[in-house]
Amino acid sequence: MPLQGRGSRVIDPRWSNVHRPTATATMNAECVITHQTDAGTTDGDGNYTPGNPATLYAGPCRVLSLSQDEAVDLIGEAQETHHRYRVSISYDAVEIPINASVHITLAPDAGLVGKAFRVISVAYGSEQWQRDLVCDERED
Results as ranks from 00 to 15, higher is better:
residue 118 R to F: 03
residue 80 E to D: 06
residue 109 D to T: 10
residue 82 H to A: 04
residue 85 Y to R: 01
residue 62 R to T: 06
residue 14 R to C: 06
residue 80 E to M: 07
residue 82 H to W: 03
residue 20 R to C: 05
residue 103 H to I: 03
residue 47 N to R: 14
residue 93 A to Y: 01
residue 86 R to T: 03
residue 131 R to W: 02
residue 37 T to Y: 15
residue 58 A to V: 11
residue 111 G to N: 13
residue 75 I to Q: 10
residue 88 S to R: 01
residue 82 H to C: 04
residue 58 A to T: 13
residue 61 C to I: 11
residue 36 Q to M: 15
residue 116 A to C: 12
residue 137 E to H: 01
residue 101 S to G: 04
residue 41 T to K: 15
residue 54 A to P: 10
residue 81 T to D: 06
residue 25 A to H: 03
residue 129 W to K: 07
residue 85 Y to I: 01
residue 79 Q to Y: 08
residue 122 V to S: 03
residue 109 D to H: 10
residue 122 V to R: 06
residue 20 R to T: 08
residue 119 V to H: 10
residue 30 E to H: 12
residue 129 W to T: 07
residue 105 T to F: 00
residue 88 S to E: 00
residue 82 H to F: 04
residue 15 W to R: 06
residue 40 G to Q: 14
residue 130 Q to C: 02
residue 121 S to L: 10
residue 137 E to F: 00
residue 69 D to R: 15
residue 30 E to N: 11
residue 57 Y to L: 06
residue 47 N to C: 14
residue 60 P to R: 12
residue 1 M to R: 06
residue 8 S to G: 10
residue 122 V to F: 07
residue 86 R to F: 02
residue 39 A to C: 12
residue 68 Q to V: 15
residue 94 V to Y: 04
residue 123 A to G: 07
residue 74 L to Q: 12
residue 72 V to W: 14
residue 34 T to V: 09
residue 79 Q to L: 07
residue 36 Q to F: 15
residue 118 R to V: 06
residue 57 Y to W: 11
residue 80 E to C: 07
residue 14 R to M: 08
residue 90 S to P: 02
residue 30 E to I: 07
residue 98 I to H: 08
residue 119 V to P: 12
residue 49 T to Y: 14
residue 80 E to Y: 03
residue 114 G to N: 10
residue 24 T to K: 05
residue 73 D to S: 11
residue 137 E to W: 00
residue 6 R to A: 07
residue 30 E to K: 13
residue 116 A to E: 10
residue 53 P to R: 13
residue 28 N to T: 11
residue 49 T to C: 14
residue 54 A to Q: 13
residue 100 A to D: 05
residue 50 P to G: 13
residue 126 S to E: 11
residue 46 G to E: 15
residue 27 M to H: 04
residue 102 V to G: 01
residue 50 P to F: 11
residue 89 I to R: 01
residue 123 A to H: 10
residue 36 Q to I: 14
residue 32 V to H: 01
residue 89 I to C: 00
residue 38 D to L: 15
residue 29 A to M: 09
